[in-house]
């Protein structure tokens, strides 16, 4: 078990190494020149060349890569070529809204979707089931930005019960913090509700057809007990997998939502850096995301242990 965790943590290093190489190369291969963007429209070729030399971008790609990796190995993510601030500080400044939004979204989605899925499976083939499935199709189909603007229009502009946009740290009070997260959370969680509800439904349905459910009924146990004690825990593993997948996908999902609601999070930082060809920041953010991805997967694998005694690492 401890050996498994250590092994998996050790395995993150090669994964991140590969990610580092690919990100570095892709950025260099993509069109666009940070020096030209930095110098502005009126700059002369000499000025641009001078900026390029100052940033070290005139070096061969291999030399640039080695110097970046060398500093990375010492824990230094480098500095932004636009603002000159350390990448680590930029990320730290922006991580709170993203973490807050991701947490509320996943929590909300799971709390809504799992009961919906279970109800749909339990009332399989009835109007309850059909309604949950309809909600799920709708959730998959509505684009995030459309839903986001509709919610802003309804709740913030017409009813005036919630703020339009922006972010307030939790240190400044719970309600100001939460009130600004409600609409982004609703917007972002819809697709996860659809995904998780569907998976829960099919997983529970499958389990309800198993032999041991028939055994439980033959024991004279009430139907609620059959569902709670015998069905749900057995249905959990696929649902947890999809929740883990959801957390990983969330990383890209926050980009649009943060833009719609003007949240100063990592998603916005990524978009801004890409537009400015701010190579060190993009590399830093993507490395962070890939590390998170690996850790989330590990956490999911460990969660299985709680639900299924047959799984051993």
């Amino acid at each position: 078990m401890g050996r498994f965790i250590l092994g998996r943590l050790a395995a993150t290093l090669p994964v991140m190494g590969v990610v580092a190489v690919i990100v570095f190369l892709l950025l260099r291969l993509a069109p666009g020149d940070p020096a030209a963007i930095l110098a502005g429209d009126a700059a002369s070729p000499e000025q641009i060349a001078e900026i390029r030399a100052r940033l070290g971008l005139d070096q061969p790609i291999l030399a640039q890569f080695l110097s970046w990796i060398g500093r990375l190995a010492q824990g230094d993510l480098g500095s932004s070529i636009i603002s000159n601030q350390p990448v680590a500080k930029l990320i730290l400044d922006r991580i709170e809204p993203t973490l807050a939004l991701a947490t509320t979204t996943i929590l909300f989605a799971v709390l809504v979707a799992v009961p919906l899925g279970v109800l749909a499976a339990w009332w399989h083939g009835t109007w309850v089931d059909r309604m949950v499935m309809a909600i799920s199709v709708l959730g998959f189909s509505v684009p995030v930005f459309v839903l986001g603007y509709l919610l802003i229009f309804g709740f913030a502009m017409q009813l005036r019960v919630l703020p339009v946009q922006g972010y307030v740290s939790i240190t400044e009070g719970l309600w100001p913090f939460l009130s600004r997260l409600i609409l982004p959370t609703l917007t972002l969680s819809v697709i996860y509700i659809a995904l998780i509800a569907r998976t829960t439904r099919s997983s529970v349905l499958e389990v309800l057809g198993e032999d041991y459910i028939r055994t439980a009924r033959a024991k004279g146990i009430g139907e609620t007990q059959v569902l709670w004690r015998h069905a749900l825990r057995n249905a959990a593993v696929p649902v947890i997998s999809v929740i883990g997948l959801g957390i990983a996908l969330l990383i890209s999902g926050v980009v649009v939502t943060e833009s719609v609601f003007n949240l100063p999070g990592l998603g916005r930082l990524t978009v801004d850096s890409v537009l400015a060809r701010d190579y060190p920041v993009i590399q830093g953010v993507i490395l962070l995301f890939s590390a998170l991805y690996v850790l989330v997967n590990l956490a999911i694998d460990l969660t299985y242990l709680l639900f299924d005694p047959r799984i051993r690492y």
């Binding site: 041991y212 028939r214 055994t215 057995n234 005694p309």
Partner: peptide, 16 residues
């Protein structure tokens, strides 16, 4: 009345 089923591999709940 009580019942014993054919498939002992699947008739017991694997997580209890």
């Amino acid at each position: 009345m009580a019942m014993v089923f054919q498939e002992p591999m699947t008739a017991l709940n694997p997580v209890l």
